[in-house]
């Protein structure tokens, strides 16, 4: 009997084990094939879904490839000027302490033009969550150097590789943020394998739960690929990320319960 179960019998709502959350809209994502932005969006929205927070959540989209995040996240959203998302979120949360507020920002947005807003929101201990997508490059504008670009890494403005003597060092914004007393939970995750996605989602949930307890700023970095900017296939890009990005940006919790994690 069991062996003869048909495809049609299996594809049945009662057997459903995974379905895209309704907190994501049905719009086709504007991201390149294989870009981690899509997965990052989805896990955040899955958490909003599972926690039943749609009506209480206000998200802030950055300038960068994810500028259109509001087309994909099925919640009320605001689109911020380049780098200023934490300023918007500060006001939203101060004026609506009962709401769940988050920003979603790239590395150029958060760690270059918006450094001041990021650091000061963190230092004031603002009660919102920052999702920081670090792909080591400016994706939207065509693959220029970001503050997070690795040494030796090529980009359209470091065509021979980044040399720190002339172009500065890659910036570990997340470690910097973790030093500030206003941050309560700081972690670095990835979304390139099923295991990493599940871990990252747990981190997202932790961050949102801590936000609800008014613990201060919660910060989830997601190291991601920009296969277009890196000029690789998505699969190659994920491998390159494992081989090159993770050694410099190691995954794991950096600050838990307001205490730096001892390594």
């Amino acid at each position: 009997m069991a062996d003869t179960i048909t495809k049609a019998e299996i594809i049945n709502p009662e057997n459903l084990v995974y379905k895209k959350t309704s907190m994501m809209t049905n719009n086709v994502l504007s991201y390149c094939p294989g870009c981690g932005h899509g997965t990052a969006h989805r896990i955040i929205m899955e958490v909003i879904d599972e926690m039943g927070l749609q009506a209480k959540t206000i998200g802030v989209a950055p300038v960068g490839c994810s500028v259109l995040a509001y087309d994909f996240m099925n919640i009320d959203m605001q689109q911020a000027a380049h780098g200023r998302a934490p300023a918007l979120a500060t006001a939203i949360k101060r004026l609506h302490p009962e709401k769940t507020v988050f920003t979603y920002q790239g590395d150029g947005d958060l760690a270059a033009i918006g450094t001041a807003e990021t650091i000061h929101a963190a230092n004031r201990g603002e009660n919102f969550t920052i999702f920081f997508i670090n792909n080591g490059i400016y994706g939207m504008t065509g693959g220029q150097m970001a503050p997070t670009t690795l040494e030796g890494m090529k980009s359209s403005t470091t065509p021979y590789g980044r040399e720190w003597q002339r172009m500065g060092h890659p910036l570990k914004m997340t470690e910097l943020i973790a030093q500030l007393p206003g941050t309560y939970y700081v972690t670095r995750q990835a979304v390139h394998t099923p295991v990493s996605v599940r871990k990252a989602k747990k981190a997202v949930r932790t961050a949102i739960e801590l936000q609800q307890q008014n613990k201060g700023l919660t910060f989830v970095e997601i190291v991601s690929n920009c296969n277009s900017g890196w000029k690789m296939t998505p699969v190659q890009a994920n491998q390159w990320m494992v081989d090159n990005m993770f050694p410099f940006y190691p995954l794991g919790d950096i600050k838990v319960d307001g205490e730096l994690v001892k390594k």
Binding site: Q78, A80, A81, A87, A91, I92, L95
Partner: peptide, 21 residues
């Protein structure tokens, strides 16, 4: 709420966030 921001750039963008609500 009265908040001393880190710059005028931050202030005006805080206004954006609050006004949008």
């Amino acid at each position: 709420i009265v908040l001393q921001a880190e710059s005028e750039v931050a202030s005006i963008n805080m206004l954006y966030g609050g006004a949008a609500c």
